[in-house]
């Protein structure tokens, strides 16, 4: 294999396929070679237990921490929904699969909460925009993706189904880009006694301080 400059930006090795085919010309000897490979793998998997098969669904591959599976509605410490029914997720949703009905919360500090929060899982495209848009980290995604149901109606997940489902704890949360902000307690104004915005904005989520980003970018350019 001689590296040839063939008009590419980098050097690309070029494989001469016809020459390689001549070398591997079929013969009786290469037949036995192939049997040897098969038998080697047979004994490996029989006695060493080195098998690539995953016994799904009892076993699964490890999923990425950013896996975008079924949504979860997160809760406050007292068990109530974090969601304030701001409709940001329903607004950004490109599949228009989120339906929210807001209600008046008895606590004027919270003021607004969702009376209904439905996601049409058949329409959802799992893009994760709703998670990006959420200003309270009230909606995140899990690593679960088992969604088989018996009727079509069950594919519309309501609040109860989105709040807590079996299997979530086992696999853990998935896509959760605003986690740092939630842990910095930016969302909870009661806990916040120091001005954390300017320090956080340097490496944190851009949507929160969009305007600061723009100004920073402007000053860098000038």
């Amino acid at each position: 294999m001689i590296p040839v400059k063939g008009g590419y930006a980098v050097d690309v090795p070029i494989i001469n396929v016809s020459e390689r085919a001549r070398r591997e010309h079929a013969s009786v000897w290469s037949t036995f070679k192939a049997f040897a490979v098969t038998l080697r793998h047979l004994f490996k998997s029989l006695f060493k237990g080195d098998t690539p098969t995953i016994y799904y669904p009892e076993e699964t591959r490890p999923y990425s921490e950013r896996f975008r599976g079924t949504h979860i509605l997160t809760v406050r410490d007292d068990g109530s929904l974090k969601c304030v029914a701001c409709y940001m997720c329903a607004t950004i949703c490109p599949a228009e699969c989120i339906y929210i009905e807001a209600g008046e919360h008895p606590n004027p500090e919270i003021e607004k909460f969702p009376e209904r929060f439905d996601i049409d899982m058949m329409r959802c495209i799992y893009c994760g925009f709703c998670v990006d848009a959420c200003p309270e980290e009230a909606i995140i995604m899990s690593r679960e993706h088992h969604q088989s149901v018996y009727t079509r109606g069950e594919t519309i997940y309501g609040i109860e189904k989105l709040m807590a489902r079996p299997g979530i704890d086992a696999k853990g949360p998935g896509y959760r880009p605003n986690r740092a902000l939630a842990e910095a307690k930016i969302f909870n104004k009661k806990d916040q006694s120091v001005c954390v915005f300017p320090s956080v904005v340097d490496e944190r989520h851009p949507a929160v301080l969009y305007e600061s980003m723009i100004r920073r970018r402007g000053s860098e350019q000038s």
């Binding site: 009661k190 916040q192 006694s193």
Partner: peptide
């Protein structure tokens, strides 16, 4: 387009 100079918790 300014950042707030006032901590949210002290408002």
């Amino acid at each position: 387009g300014h950042d707030s100079r006032y901590p949210l918790g002290q408002k």
